[in-house]
Design a protein around this nucleic acid. Structure first.
Length: 322
DNA sequence: CATTCGTGAAGACGAAT
DNA sequence: ATTCGATTTCACGAATG
């Protein structure tokens, strides 16, 4: 029912500000559904409900990991093969201007050989870097798929990674870690953050490792990354919990007032978001248990309790002050 | 009975040294 | 590299509805 759009081929490149595309009407309220390309979500303009998340990527489903706990939500994992290199293609062109029989070549063939050698050389030097890049980019793509991150985030991640390579930031650090770090940074810059925990479930390296890589990247590349905004987590969690639009909005505003009250500082954004959702669900009389929210957001009930009280306090304070 | 609330001990993380 | 401070988590029991 959304076929009215002429399907404009999405522009590459400058997608600075949030681009929206009208794609129909909201099933809940009657608001317009627009595609928020920056977030890769289809959201209603009025109520902000996320209609469908992660539709950007219908990438392949890989087989599952077998290490670590099997989170039932994780449906993708490492590809089974990682040998994508140029086996057998790396023979060198000899330097002697002789053919297979050892005879010297005439000038025409000789210059031809010169050209071939030149190219051969170029490929060979480029090869090492290019090969690493390919692998890293492949990993970025795989993880982005797994986490439902939109295209532009992947591109950003690629750019970050390339910059890292250009500036020789890869001494000792594993490609995997840097790739994950790049994607993590890109996700945050793109307004679709995923927690370190979530990355840990799809990355092949330890949390600690890519977290460090990320810090390093942010530091060396001067990436302007502010602490993640709790609000950015809300749509996803709300969607998972099938929260009503009122509650979702409530959670948003709760976070806004809390933010202006300066309650957040050093606190986990995810926890804040979870608490806001919990609080909102009560305020709107669709109570969800702390345990449920905690599970959706991967935070403990205790954290939700603490934040939740702070949230309400902040709100009361703002209400009486106004 | 289920859910929520509060607590102390233990671990993880970032910042500072 | 280690230490310190704050935050989060776990486990438990009590209170609440």
């Amino acid at each position: 029912m959304t076929e009215t759009q002429p399907l404009t081929t999405s522009r590459r490149g400058q997608t600075r500000e949030t681009e929206t595309e009208d794609t129909g009407a909201c099933p809940e309220c009657d608001g317009r559904i627009v595609t928020d390309e920056e977030r890769g979500e289809q959201v209603c303009e009025d109520c902000g409900i996320v209609v469908e998340d992660g539709l950007v990527d219908h990438g392949p489903e890989w087989r599952a990991f077998d290490d670590e706990d099997a989170d039932e939500k994780r449906r993708v994992g490492a590809p089974t093969t990682k040998l994508l290199h140029d086996d057998g293609l790396s023979s060198v062109i000899g330097w002697q201007n002789r053919d297979a029989h050892g005879r010297t070549l005439n000038s025409e063939k000789r210059s031809k050989m010169e050209r071939l050698r030149t190219w051969d050389e170029r490929f060979r030097t480029k090869d090492a870097k290019e090969r690493n890049l390919k692998q890293a980019l492949g990993e970025i793509d795989r993880m982005a798929s797994a986490l439902g991150l939109p295209e532009n985030v992947r591109e950003t991640a690629s750019v970050i990674y390339r910059r890292a390579v250009d500036e020789d930031l890869l001494p000792g650090r594993s490609i995997e870690a840097m790739a994950t770090g790049s994607l993590y940074a890109a996700a945050r810059q793109g307004g679709t953050p995923r927690s370190l925990d979530e990355f840990a479930t799809v990355s092949r390296v330890e949390r600690k490792e890519f977290a460090r890589a990320y810090r390093y990247l942010a530091e060396e590349l001067g990436l302007a990354i502010e602490p993640a905004d709790p609000v950015e987590y809300v749509p996803r969690f709300a969607s998972d919990l099938e929260l009503s639009k009122e509650a979702t909005q409530r959670a948003r505003s709760l976070l806004e007032t809390a933010k202006s009250a300066g309650v957040h500082s050093g606190k986990s954004p995810v926890g804040l978001a979870a608490a806001a959702i919990y609080a909102a669900s009560i305020l709107v009389n669709e109570k969800i248990t702390q345990a449920e929210v905690g599970e959706a957001a991967n935070v403990s009930e205790v954290t939700i309790r603490n934040r939740y009280r702070e949230l309400l306090d902040a709100q009361d304070g703002a209400a009486t002050a106004a």
